Amino acid sequence: MTDLLTAAQRALAALDDLISNTSDPGVEALGARHELSVVLINAAIGSNPGRVLTLLEHDAAWHAIEGAAGEEGADPGTVLAAVLHALGIDPPANEDEMAASLRRDGFGDAEITEILRSAAA
């Protein structure tokens, strides 16, 4: 499975290079990129099954939620950040989170790329 996953990651990187270096990559290239991404995600999920929190992790998360929820102006992001910190888990990079949020809002890859470039400038 690891060799297949590595090969798929290399193919995705090559496809990303092709798309980013082409003024109009076309629907086929973007569709192929999406399908390859889905394969990679499914492979990653299959190779990294979930696990049960330890009692210490559960306790740390519980207390992080309890503490963060009581803070003035606490929002779900504040609570989530506290829980992840308590569990020693790094959140996704801001750029990745922003891209995922834009995707959920219906933006396409080209639009997301442009928005992220503008935000970075």
Rank of each mutant, 00 (worst) to 15 (best):
A93G: 12
H63F: 13
L36D: 02
D75P: 00
I89Q: 11
G67N: 13
S20D: 15
G73V: 05
I115L: 11
L18I: 07
L116W: 03
I65W: 06
A121F: 06
R10G: 10
I45M: 12
S118D: 14
H58D: 13
H58L: 14
I65T: 06
L84T: 06
G50Y: 03
L40R: 03
A68K: 00
A121Y: 05
M1K: 09
V39R: 10
P76N: 04
D17A: 12
P49I: 05
A119Y: 08
R104A: 13
D109H: 11
G67R: 12
E71R: 15
L102R: 03
A93L: 14
L87T: 05
L116Y: 01
A61S: 09
S20V: 07
E66D: 15
G108L: 07
A29I: 04
A32M: 13
G106H: 06
E66T: 11
N48I: 00
D16C: 03
S101H: 11
R104H: 07
A74N: 02
I19N: 01
G31F: 05
L15I: 04
H58S: 14
A43N: 01
P91N: 09
G26N: 04
E97H: 07
A81P: 02
G88H: 02
S47W: 00
R51P: 01
L18G: 03
D17L: 09
P76R: 05
Q9R: 15
T78F: 02
A99D: 01
D16N: 04
E95M: 07
V39E: 04
E114D: 13
P49Y: 02
G67A: 15
I41L: 10
A64R: 08
G67D: 13
N21D: 11
S118V: 10
D3G: 05
A13L: 11
I19K: 00
A44F: 06
I89H: 10
E111S: 14
F107C: 07
E28F: 08
G67P: 00
A32F: 08
D3F: 05
D105V: 00
H63I: 00
G77H: 08
E66Y: 10
T113R: 08
G70K: 15
S23L: 11
G77W: 01
L30P: 02
L56S: 14
F107D: 02
L18C: 03
G73F: 06
G88P: 02
D24V: 05
G26P: 02
D109E: 15
V83R: 02
E57H: 04
S23D: 12
A69G: 08
P76M: 03
A69R: 14
P92L: 15
E35A: 15
L30N: 04
P92K: 09
A121E: 12
M98E: 11
D105L: 15
E57F: 03
T2Y: 08
P25D: 06
L84K: 07
G46C: 01
I65G: 03
N21T: 13
F107L: 15
A82E: 02
